[in-house]
């Protein structure tokens, strides 16, 4: 059981107010708060889950989207296994800013091969009626940028939230498997007890 496979760090980036904190809350605690404070700095929550028979701990890092908190969040990009670029479908500016978020992440996370890094794009607030960003528009940007998976979510009514996070996990794991295949001596296959799986919450 290498550390890589047991703890996955997934980071949520995107403009202030797009719903990053709401998505994390919905996914981990299954709650929604219509009047959430802006996030200050960086916070995380853990969730244990089983994907394709593997138990992993998903560590979701929620960041402050507002520009003034930039210096507080950027030091923690390092070590991420996956980046969730988030915008709000009722805010075209937040969509156009995705490119900046991606740049900021690649720069501060010190990603060696940005082309193969697993990004996932989330268009949140699907439940709102006044859309400013169309599904096609978003999908097209994802294709051009490197074939990122795209999910339209709603933290408010829980649409697609779990699916999106699970896809992120799957992306990371498949990437790891490929690495393991290439350099099989790199990771040690420790004796894993079946008991621990059932004990975990």
């Amino acid at each position: 059981m290498s550390s890589k496979s047991s703890l996955l760090k997934v980071i949520l980036l995107g403009d202030g107010g797009v719903g990053k904190s709401s998505l994390m809350n919905r996914y981990v605690t299954n709650k929604f708060d219509a009047h959430l404070f802006h996030t200050i700095g960086v916070e995380f929550l853990n969730k244990d889950l089983e994907v394709d028979g593997r138990t992993v701990t998903l560590q979701i890092w929620d960041t402050a989207g507002q520009e003034r908190f930039r210096s507080l969040r950027t030091p923690f990009y390092r070590g991420s296994d996956c980046c969730l670029l988030t915008f709000s479908v009722d805010d075209s500016q937040s969509f156009h800013n995705l490119v900046n978020w991606k740049k900021e992440f690649i720069y501060y996370a010190d990603v060696k091969e940005p082309e193969s890094f697993p990004f996932v794009v989330l268009g949140n607030k699907l439940d709102v009626s006044e859309r400013q960003v169309s599904s096609e528009e978003a999908q097209e940007w994802c294709m051009e940028s490197g074939g990122y998976p795209y999910f339209e979510t709603s933290a408010k009514d829980a649409t697609n939230v779990a699916v999106a996070f699970e896809e992120a996990v799957r992306r990371v794991l498949s990437l790891e498997d490929r690495h393991e295949h290439l350099i099989p001596t790199d990771t040690v296959n420790l004796h894993r007890k079946p008991r621990s799986a059932t004990q975990c919450c």
Binding site: V28, I40, G41, E43, F44, L45, D62, S71, L72, F76
Partner: peptide, 21 residues
């Protein structure tokens, strides 16, 4: 399942400059 705050040494987030509760 409560959130865990993370900060760098020297960055006091809850100081007067950030009015988070």
């Amino acid at each position: 399942k409560t959130r865990v705050g993370v900060r760098l040494l020297g960055h006091l987030l809850r100081g007067s400059s950030f009015r988070g509760a």
